[in-house]
Design a protein around this nucleic acid. Structure first.
Lengths: 148, 148
DNA sequence: ATTACTGCAAATACTTTGCAATTGT
DNA sequence: ACAATTGCAAAGTATTTGCAGTAAT
């Protein structure tokens, strides 16, 4: 195998689900599982092109959507433009700069959040609402943009 | 004046900022400040048309964007389609159904959240990051869709 | 009178679809 | 060999832009 646990987990699920593994797909998975910059589909596309110049944007979209439907990447909708993808599916929040659009991770302790959720929020939801994913965003101005 | 405090607050800010108040604008503000259903721009457009059949979708977009930039409505990006607007700018979360797209409010106690934020999250952020808005989303299946 | 707002049409941006050719298993 | 995936082109949606005419203060 290799040393990236996210990559391995995704490849395993791909195999388990009976999907095939093309070079383009592998490269897309590598990029998204290693990236810390929450790239858009176009960002990923430009990276894949370095290795496979013939790849189409469409292929990137299809693969990222597939990974999202498998819950192996998280989609982030910002206020300003396209969807961004996050290969880190662990619990964490995002601080999104309203000016430059940069997205940075905000560490959220899983234990703390779960306790907050269980004690303060869960009972506000309809009993049979089945939660599958959380999103916690902070909108504002990052250090760089706050100066202006 | 009238009995809708959100409406009054928005009208006051409009005036303070020196914007003018057209009938279409007033109607858009009325709709968004009274609605509890998190409508999209097109939803609002269809409602405005009942009173002003000649209104353009463009006008609706412009007004909703203006209100968002004034922080008088909140934009909600769902996973599936267009932006939805929320005239309730008080602290609360949204549960978004991944199947039918329905958005329901989730009550979050301001005191509890602020304490959680202050003690557990704030110190994870860069010191000079200026937060202006929060977003808390729960993605999953609503009662109706969970049956299928 | 001046400035902002509206409505129309066209443009742009992002994402999806249809399909023939190709590739992975 | 078979089914899934790719790349291309075209279509679809959501949103924005430019601008002349109109309305608000």
């Amino acid at each position: 195998m290799n040393s990236n646990p996210r990559l391995n987990a995704i490849l395993l699920k791909i195999k388990k689900m009976g999907y095939s593994l093309t070079p383009q797909r592998l490269e897309i998975i590598k990029i998204i599982s290693e990236s810390k910059s929450h790239p858009s589909a176009t960002d990923v596309y430009n990276k894949v092109k370095e290795l496979y110049p013939m790849v189409s944007l469409n292929t990137v979209y299809k693969n990222l959507s597939m990974l999202a439907s498998l819950h192996e990447v998280k989609e982030i909708k910002t206020m300003q433009d396209s969807v961004h993808y996050d290969g880190d599916i662990s619990l964490h929040g995002h601080a999104i700069c309203e000016k430059c659009g940069k997205i940075i991770d905000v560490e959220i302790d899983e234990f703390d959040f779960k306790r907050f959720f269980e004690t303060k929020i869960k009972n506000k939801l309809n009993e049979n609402y089945r939660i599958r994913n959380y999103g916690v965003e902070f909108y504002g101005l990052c250090g760089g943009c706050d100066k202006d």
